[in-house]
Design a protein around this nucleic acid. Sequence first.
DNA 1: TCAAAAGTGTTATCCTTACACCCATGT
DNA 2: ACATGGGTGTAAGGATAACACTTTTGA
Lengths: 319, 319
Amino acid sequence: MPPATEHVRNVTIELNAVVVALIDGAPHVLTLDDGALLPSGPFESDHPTLQTGLRAWVERQTRHPLGYTEQLYTFADRSRADASGRRIVSISYLALTREHVEAGRREPGWQDWYRYFPWEDWRAGGAEPLLRALLKGLRHWADAAPDAPTKRLRRQRVEIDFDAESWNEDLVLQRYELLYEAGLVPEAIATRAGRARRPITHALPPSLGGMAMRHDHRRILATGIARLRAKIKYRPMVFELMPPDFTLGQLQAAVEALAGRPLHKQNFRRLIEQQGLVEETGATTAETGGRPAKLYRFRREILLERAVAGSKLPLARPA
Amino acid sequence: MPPATEHVRNVTIELNAVVVALIDGAPHVLTLDDGALLPSGPFESDHPTLQTGLRAWVERQTRHPLGYTEQLYTFADRSRADASGRRIVSISYLALTREHVEAGRREPGWQDWYRYFPWEDWRAGGAEPLLRALLKGLRHWADAAPDAPTKRLRRQRVEIDFDAESWNEDLVLQRYELLYEAGLVPEAIATRAGRARRPITHALPPSLGGMAMRHDHRRILATGIARLRAKIKYRPMVFELMPPDFTLGQLQAAVEALAGRPLHKQNFRRLIEQQGLVEETGATTAETGGRPAKLYRFRREILLERAVAGSKLPLARPA
DNA sequence: TCAAAAGTGTTATCCTTACACCCATGT
DNA sequence: ACATGGGTGTAAGGATAACACTTTTGA
């Protein structure tokens, strides 16, 4: 049952990559054009799979080898089209890698991801003034709803997604999309103005609304961060971003950087140890300041040993 | 940065849907062509989004309205191409719905999903002979590896994915792909024979290897089942498949049908109740046999009230 | 000697698991 | 009366969250 081909002539396939690395403990993403774009390129049909196509393209474009990769999402909204009006289907990927320093100096193009989402960093507690400003704009938008049910719904979404008391670090995408819908980020204005050309509320300045990106690349970035934050809890993904040897303090700092939240030291250590994720190398380092710390390495075997956790369902009969 | 268009001319976008419903308590999937195909069709570029395109197509093709839908995965392997050699990019979706009975008689096209994956049904305990047969074929394949490391890896994958003692119901896709790699399902033979035309081990008969599908539709189905099984544990997705009112016994049977495993009655009830997912309607039914059961309904508010679970990380400082 | 980070011990609480039993209906 | 599914109580064990404290280095 091959589909009719008539309908799909005007489609372009684009691959996007959210390439993540930890640089000096801070989460960074690989960008082009001074931070305005994610690495992206066409799917060349001589590649056997999408992933190999992506790898080739990104490595050529950024001179940076990719490590672990997984597919994120495929977007094809009408708002996306290239100059000639061809519909763009963009297939996005998340890639984890270690920072690649070539010839002694740092490659350009790495951006701290919290520059795009300043409200997502709660490592030092909530940024009160920033959050208050966002909530003000969002509540104003909610109250401007055309009818009562819409208004209730908007208010509910705002209070849940941005609730400081029970902050959920996984809702990166929802929060960005809410700001987008509310017209508080510049990307929304560009889109709406182009199509409906109706005047729109002023977006927040970058200091509050974060740095913008072109097209929907910031949405893709939000998708990638959300996926990483969610998955870090039940899959050993952090290790893809760590050097071979590390201290438990460094490991905790890495998770904190990704999740954007401070963690409880002792309980974090117990968790790691109890899951059997790491083993001591025998060596120690004094580089972290204070008392020298034991070095650990990731136990790669674990990926095969256990099909990882699972159940959560109250099964009957113990085999 | 619009990509060069040269490379992508020979691409066709296809949408696939895994449409799931519970019929008489058994999980079914909507198919065409006597069970050999999933509903699928072209992405017509006059649709604003992929989802609306999918909905329109499926509803026209099957006369069945879709409920909740989510994107599954985008495939574009070289092995997939249409008659004229154009590359096919297939974007697949999972859709949940209630059975739709029109004019008193059942629509055709619904297939019990365990016909495609008989080894995935552990509701009545493991199917020993079936599993033994699969393991025999898989171990044979592992031992036929070209070198020692490959052999070790294959053996490990086989023992983990098909281990009866610690069965993980989420590994639907991994298990199917292992059988595919081992040449035990007919789909693998079709593909390999077409390209490499080298003789291949005989596939298992349908009674063991399950019913085959055309193209890679069975892989897409496996992806859908795996997603549903994984997500059912932390998102209230079952309710999309239930009638408005139901008993706790029916709810448990539904989860068991999807997960393919028997659950512990009391603990299941406690879990549901403690999560505040349902509320009593006040009515009871005697249709289930035995003592009449209370009827419950899903508390839709919960979707908004809680951003659902989350943490799992050992956070510091209680706000 | 003091700041900084590493590392240890312990307790209360909650959730999960497992057991054993009673209840209300139809046949 | 008895089979069938509905519904309840409760105790043991493990994981989590929250305490406070000691150790070893560099400056």
